[in-house]
Amino acid sequence: MTSPESSDDKPVLMPHSYDGIQEFDQSLPNWWLFTLFGSIVFAALYWAYYFHSGVAVDDHTALDADLSVLEAKQLAAVKDLNDETLWKMSRNALTVTEGQAVYTSLCITCHGPTLAGVKGIGFRLNDADWVHGNTPTAIYRNISEGIVFDGKPTGMAPQKALGTAKIAAVTAFLLSTQEPGKLAVIPRSEEPSQK
């Protein structure tokens, strides 16, 4: 039996001594050293792969690729949206109800609960007079892009974040009270809710 004194791994003291304090000469755990050398190797591989291999896709390119996929999807959806389809949607009860829900949660603030507009803020939307375009696609665009007048943004902010489907539904809801071919264009100054 080995006694503690003769144990094979009695730590050795380092020869130096500072202020009478000496330290043991013990090795670090191998798993610990493995994490050190492992991260050095990882850093080298990472650096080589991301900066010099030409294989890795950098974040900007990846983001651009993702965005273009998204945009392609949107474009594909918008492509099917023309005056005719929007009119058709405006006669579909489901789409109109969906559009009305969006309207009451959002547009109602400025255009009022009865679409009558709010003086000085939101245009009247329940008559046949339109200021910024009188086609379904123009209405869609105005909701999506917002309205800039005289080179200045107006209170009508872009609502692009709603997404194609919801904007189309709101457009359909607005068109549901209108008749095809009966939308007239009037100058901005004559819009009744502006006076």
């Binding site: 006694s3 144990s7 791994d9 009695k10 730590p11 670090l28 755990p29 191998n30 050293l33």
Partner: peptide, 20 residues
């Protein structure tokens, strides 16, 4: 014989750094 614990070193790490 089983290893004898030392107060001055960690039992589970052998002098060569390997795991006990």
């Amino acid at each position: 014989m089983a290893h004898v614990p030392q107060r001055d070193s960690v039992t589970t790490i052998a002098p060569d750094g390997s795991r006990r």
